Amino acid sequence: MSVRMPSNFGRSGAQESALDLLGHEILAEKAAALGRTGQRVEETLKKLRENSDSEQRTRLLKEAAAAVHAYFIQRELCGLRRHESVIREYDIPRAVLVRLGAS
């Protein structure tokens, strides 16, 4: 499917301006989504650290791994490909990273 600018944008300058506004809107939404997924990572890791029950721990590890995975994907969509600093900053446990396939 292709998207075409409306024909009422007569000049190319107006078209460029509209596309620029759309680009800013997309970037703002990407940043907001990155913030939301980062907050979810913080929440799930906090629950994981606070709980020592082995039955709950398995479920919490799964939730934390899903949240971290979503965060890594969102970072990559924003053009941020390296995750080492984030792993250190959030202090993501090795048990969570192993569930993501890290060795």
Score class of each variant (00 low, 15 high):
Met1Gln: 12
Ser2Asn: 14
Arg4His: 03
Met5His: 06
Pro6Val: 07
Pro6Tyr: 07
Pro6Phe: 01
Ser7Pro: 13
Asn8Met: 07
Phe9Trp: 14
Gly10Phe: 07
Gly13Pro: 01
Gly13Trp: 06
Gln15Ile: 10
Gln15Arg: 14
Gln15His: 04
Gln15Phe: 05
Gln15Lys: 12
Glu16Asn: 05
Glu16Thr: 10
Glu16Leu: 13
Ala18Asp: 11
Leu19His: 10
Leu21Thr: 08
Leu22Asp: 12
Gly23Val: 00
Gly23Arg: 13
His24Asn: 10
His24Ile: 03
Glu25Trp: 04
Glu25Gln: 10
Ile26Asp: 02
Ile26Glu: 06
Leu27Asp: 05
Ala28Cys: 09
Ala28Glu: 13
Ala28Gly: 11
Glu29Asp: 10
Glu29Cys: 08
Glu29Gln: 13
Glu29Gly: 04
Lys30His: 12
Lys30Phe: 10
Lys30Arg: 15
Ala31Phe: 11
Ala31His: 08
Ala32Arg: 12
Leu34Gly: 05
Leu34Trp: 12
Gly35Pro: 01
Gly35Lys: 13
Arg36Pro: 00
Thr37Lys: 08
Thr37Asp: 07
Gly38Gln: 05
Arg40Trp: 09
Val41Ser: 04
Glu42Ala: 01
Glu42Leu: 01
Glu42Gln: 00
Glu43Arg: 07
Thr44Gln: 04
Leu45Phe: 09
Lys46Thr: 00
Lys46Met: 07
Leu48Trp: 05
Leu48Ala: 02
Arg49Cys: 02
Asn51Trp: 03
Asn51Gln: 15
Asn51His: 09
Asn51Val: 02
Asn51Arg: 08
Ser52Lys: 11
Ser54Ile: 07
Glu55Ala: 10
Glu55Asp: 08
Gln56Ser: 14
Gln56Gly: 15
Arg57Glu: 13
Arg57Gly: 02
Thr58Ser: 15
Thr58Met: 13
Leu60Lys: 11
Leu60Ile: 00
Leu60Gln: 07
Leu61Met: 09
Leu61Tyr: 01
Leu61Asn: 14
Lys62Gln: 13
Lys62Arg: 14
Glu63Arg: 02
Glu63Ser: 05
Ala64His: 04
Ala64Tyr: 05
Ala64Ile: 14
Ala64Cys: 15
Ala65Asn: 13
Ala66Asn: 03
Ala66His: 03
Ala67Asp: 02
Ala67Thr: 01
Val68His: 08
Val68Gly: 06
Ala70Leu: 09
Ala70Lys: 01
Tyr71Ala: 08
Tyr71Cys: 02
Phe72Lys: 12
Ile73Trp: 09
Ile73Phe: 06
Gln74Tyr: 03
Arg75Leu: 07
Glu76Tyr: 00
Leu77Asp: 02
Leu77Met: 09
Cys78Ile: 06
Cys78Pro: 03
Gly79Ile: 06
Gly79Ala: 03
Leu80Ala: 06
Leu80Trp: 02
Arg82Trp: 06
His83Gly: 04
His83Thr: 07
His83Asp: 06
His83Gln: 09
Glu84Ala: 08
Glu84Pro: 01
Ser85Asn: 06
Ser85Glu: 10
Ile87Leu: 11
Ile87Asp: 14
Ile87Gln: 14
Arg88Glu: 15
Arg88Asp: 11
Arg88Gly: 02
Glu89Cys: 05
Glu89Gln: 07
Tyr90Asn: 00
Asp91Glu: 13
Ile92Lys: 07
Pro93Cys: 09
Pro93Val: 11
Ala95Gly: 05
Ala95Ser: 15
Val96Phe: 11
Leu97Ala: 11
Leu97Asp: 05
Leu100Cys: 08
Leu100Thr: 12
Leu100Pro: 02
Leu100Ser: 12
Ala102Phe: 14
Ser103Pro: 08
